[in-house]
Design a binder for these strands. Structure first.
Length: 414
RNA sequence: CGGGGUGUGGCGCAGUUGGUAGCGCGCAUCGUUUGGGACGAUGAGGCCAGAGGUUCAAGUCCUCUCACCCCGACCA
């Protein structure tokens, strides 16, 4: 992509109405635009990051048998009344509205009810189970207070998955596979050193649910981590009994602040009973479906990555989620020879399938470097009158650059 | 929802005891520059968040409203 065509421009100064690091950097670099408190638009660069994260999640969900769907954001009052979750006293994040005819509707803040209701059409026999569906949805939550940039918005993108199993054993097998898949996701987006599977409150039917917590001061959760065992306990269930049940020792635990980037939950048969989602067993008798629910906040994950990977100059994206792999910077572009070389380099990257952002703007070198650091693409490649028949490459976050041949660089990156 | 703070060109800010607004960045044109946010000249751009008061006169004083940020509460 030609940077001269990119409509977003970087800003030298942070917006006055954002104190969170993620929002400051993402807005300055042109990844996002703030529409109102807790609602952000995703611009070309930002959308690319979202797409990368979604692809990684999709691959991992597909690998454990997930089937992608897309439910509606508009939801029926009647459906949520069945499970007593329409009431504002039980769920205080509803955005409610009504149709022209007067029917009450809500904007989806979660989708267990509608997905499960829909599944009554498709689940009839034990032979239909297990089945797993997931989606990327824009969720709406009327938070009393949004905060921390894109970490806690009123409108945000979430990957939510729902599992339907014939019994607890079948459910437990899948539940464990989701844990592994989630760990893969967080490792692949670069958070392997930061994310801990965390035991948290389990609600009505299980002792614990599991959260995936990324250690960061920007978070709003408090957890106790055992770094050698790679597990943690949420403050909400932290007590002697919990430690005993989990086989943890108080002296091995460190109290930290963290961001909840994922959550998996065993609903048991409760919701299926309420909604009437049942199937016929091998013996001909009827049974309710065992439901599980699994979420990853996609936009929150993006914000978490920015919180964890930045320096005073800007963002430092992990390779796997960066909007581009290479930031190609052309200097001395009034020199026809250099201009040809840098254009050739751009073509070669493109042909090699390496995503490249080409800074072809007429601008001082310092300005280009500053923008490059702010945007945070992994490889900065400079072509100028000084680089001769080679190119200068520097990784974002490192200070050393090197002169290398373009062909070698391309094969290295691939 | 309780507490605290902030609203002034696109962005970041200043504006004294009330007297019809200024700086930096950015933007436009021209020239000089060209490896870490270059320099000069010229220029465009503002119902001072909104409404209502006080006053000869309000960005400035009073009242209300709205928006945004932070802390807390809340967050299956």
């Amino acid at each position: 992509m030609f940077q001269s065509k990119l409509f977003t421009k970087s800003k030298k100064e942070s917006p006055a109405d954002e104190l969170s690091r993620n929002a400051q950097l993402l807005i300055r670099a042109g990844y996002i635009y703030k529409e109102m408190a807790g609602a952000y638009a995703y611009l070309p660069l930002g959308l690319r990051v979202i797409s990368k994260i979604k692809s990684i999640i999709s691959e991992e969900m597909d690998a454990i048998g997930g089937q992608e769907i897309l439910m509606t954001a508009l939801q029926r009052k009647e459906l949520w009344e069945v499970t007593d979750r329409w009431n504002d006293e039980n769920v205080d994040v509803w955005f409610k509205s009504e149709l022209k005819g007067g029917q009450k509707v809500g904007l989806g803040w979660s989708h267990e009810e509608p997905v499960s209701e829909m599944m009554k059409q498709y689940i009839h026999s034990y032979k239909d189970l297990p089945l797993y569906v997931y989606q990327f949805q824009t969720k709406f939550r009327n938070e009393l207070r949004s905060k921390s940039g894109i970490l806690r918005g009123r409108e945000f993108v979430m990957k939510d998955m729902y599992s339907y199993c014939k019994d607890a054993d079948q459910h437990n097998v899948f539940y464990k596979s989701v844990i592994d898949a989630y760990i893969n996701v967080f490792n692949r987006v670069g958070l392997s050193d930061y994310v801990y599977i965390t035991s948290a409150s389990g609600g009505a039917f299980t002792e614990f649910s599991h959260e995936f917590q990324a250690i960061s001061e920007a978070g709003e959760d408090t957890i106790y981590v055992d770094k050698s065992k790679k597990v943690a306990v949420n403050d909400e269930v932290y007590n002697e009994k919990t430690l005993k049940d989990l086989g943890l020792n108080e002296k091995d635990l460190e109290k930290v602040t963290s961001i909840e980037v994922g959550n998996i939950f065993d609903f048991g048969k409760m919701k299926s009973e309420q909604l009437g989602l049942s199937f016929t067993k091998e013996d001909g008798n009827s049974e309710y479906v065992h439901l599980g629910s699994y979420g990853i906040g996609v936009t929150r994950l993006m914000g978490t990555i920015v919180e964890l990977f930045n320096d005073e100059k800007g963002i430092i994206w992990p390779d796997s989620v960066a909007p581009f792999k290479v930031h190609l910077i052309g200097l001395n572009l009034d020199n026809a020879d250099v201009l040809k070389k840098v254009n050739d380099a751009y073509d070669k990257f493109q042909k090699a399938g390496i995503e490249v952002l080409f800074d072809d703007r007429e601008m001082s070198a310092g300005g280009k470097f500053a923008d490059s650091d702010l945007i945070g693409v992994p490889y900065r490649v400079v072509v100028s009158a000084k680089t001769g028949d080679k190119v200068e490459v520097k990784r974002r976050g490192e200070s050393e650059s090197a002169l290398v041949s373009l062909d070698n660089l391309i094969s290295d990156i691939k």
